[in-house]
Amino acid sequence: MARMKFLCDTERCIECNGCVTACKNEHEVPWGINRRRVVTINDGEKGERSLSVACMHCSDAPCMAVCPVDCFFQTADGVVLHDKDICIGCGYCFYACPFGAPQFPTGGVFGSRGKMDKCTFCAGGPGEANSAEQVRKYGRNRLAEGKLPICAEMCATKALLAGDGDVVADIFRQRMAYRGAAGLGTGWGVAYDKGLRKASGLDGKAAGKED
């Protein structure tokens, strides 16, 4: 059984917000809700890095732990989903989440937030896969169609990886291998260096696709 994971390669992300746009378009996410967002550290300075972040589908998910109505569940693939019919919009998951993944459609007074919305790893929610109701509440269910999350599929630089944790880890491990021991923080010069890639014997091949 696969264990679904996201991974954002900071050496490759160019802050194009393609993942954000793809997500919003695919799921018809209402205004004000960002299931995925790109955060740039030290923007415009030396050492600038961008990270695309969404729900990380934790194994011991804090949102699941604190939900007063217990509306979360984890699929066999390790995707953390929630039931909007059960959710009461209390906001506890937003307090507990490390990544700021849970979002609320209205930020009104008197604690009126509306039902929580978050990244579903393109796996919809409870109910029949890709039924009209499921699509309306949770967006498309791409996993049920045998596809991976649209954000990673659309990523132009393949900075954002999504899929089985083992495959994602293999791809990233090989990238690390040709970047050398320094690994992180090497910059685009190393991350995209053809010579280095050739030398590492990994030219043009993603590990996942070789399997």
Binding site: G32, N34, R37, V39, T40, N42, P62, A96, Q103
Partner: peptide, 21 residues
Amino acid sequence: ADANTQARGVESAVLINQVGE
């Protein structure tokens, strides 16, 4: 951190929530 994002919202530029846990 010196971070920013296109997403509008409270603390949307915060990558790791420090108090959640």
